[in-house]
Computed example of a mutant assay.
Amino acid sequence: MAANNTVTLYDLQLASGATISPFVWATKLAIAHKGLDMEIVPGGFTGIEERTGGKTQRLPAIVDDGEWILDSWTIAEYLDEKYPDRPTLIGDPGIRPSAQMNEAWLWQTAVGPWMTCYLVAYRDRSVPEDHEYVTATRETMFGGRKLEDIIVGREDRLPRISADLELMRGVLRENKWFGGDSPNYADHRMLACFLWLASVCDTPALAEDDPLRDWIDRGFDLYGGIGRHPGLSNIFGLKQRAGDPDLFNRNPMANGLTSRNTGVKSTAGETARMKGQKAGA
């Protein structure tokens, strides 16, 4: 068992001390979910192998009673196995592939596109010794283009990214968490993406009244406010301009993907829409 209820976490941080990596964020949430405390080993991208004594070049990594565990999914599985009497992270093995699919969708839909909007802030907020690394690796990732050129036009991209998150909004209109009545590791993986967003955004990405805000705020407040680091930015406040797509659907219609059939009334609106009629007709 963890000595003094504490595990050691190797963090990946910005100059502010806020975590930058969504995978480290997911691990932080997982450890807190288990009711464990964290002894944080700080640092940025530079010198990970040296900090970990040659154990890894990538983070997260934790040490529990002298045992090293790498990779965010492996860490979550380890925590469930090592501490079965504490709140479960994954539970049914079927959760992992479905959570991975949802996370992959979020990365393709939003995280990747957001990256093109915030790469300069990503570099500038990194610890000074990481600036060269972030510049070189991210410019290579985007075909050799300069970071300053990649973010050009982001004011046009941000509204489209927001609009594309409607699938998440639909699910969360019908469910408190992706884990159901309480958060599980699927929530932690998705929340970690928004915590990453808060670490790099220098201009808002979502509308002030975005329906996702309830889930995000509750998620950031989990475990004593683990997602409320002072180095994080407010991700809300995006304004819709003339010609922009709607930032989110203000008149959502329940559908069979997210709502239950409990009788005629529960499906009347969708049936009317399919027939080209007004709801209630």
Rank of each mutant, 00 (worst) to 15 (best):
L12C: 05
A15W: 02
I20A: 12
V24H: 00
V24T: 03
K28D: 03
H33Y: 05
I40H: 09
G44Q: 06
F45D: 07
T52C: 06
K55C: 11
V63Y: 04
W68H: 10
I69S: 05
L70H: 09
I75A: 00
A76W: 04
E77Q: 14
E77M: 13
E77V: 12
L79D: 00
D80A: 05
Y83D: 01
T88C: 06
I90M: 05
I95R: 15
A99V: 09
A104G: 11
W107F: 13
Q108L: 14
G112D: 10
T116Y: 07
D124G: 01
S126R: 13
S126W: 08
E132M: 12
T135P: 00
T137A: 11
G144D: 05
E148G: 09
I150F: 03
I151S: 02
I151Y: 07
V152I: 10
V152A: 05
R154C: 00
E155N: 12
E155T: 13
L158I: 10
P159L: 02
I161G: 01
V171M: 10
K176E: 10
W177R: 01
F178K: 01
D181W: 12
Y185N: 04
H188Y: 06
M190D: 10
M190A: 13
A192H: 02
L197Q: 04
C201L: 09
T203A: 15
E208R: 06
E208H: 09
L212A: 02
D214W: 12
D214E: 14
L222N: 00
I226C: 07
P230S: 07
G231I: 07
G231T: 05
F236E: 07
F236M: 07
G237K: 11
D246L: 12
R250K: 15
R250G: 06
M253D: 09
R260V: 15
R260S: 13
G263C: 08
T267V: 15
G269T: 13
E270D: 09
E270Y: 15
T271Q: 14
Q277I: 09
A281T: 12
A281P: 10
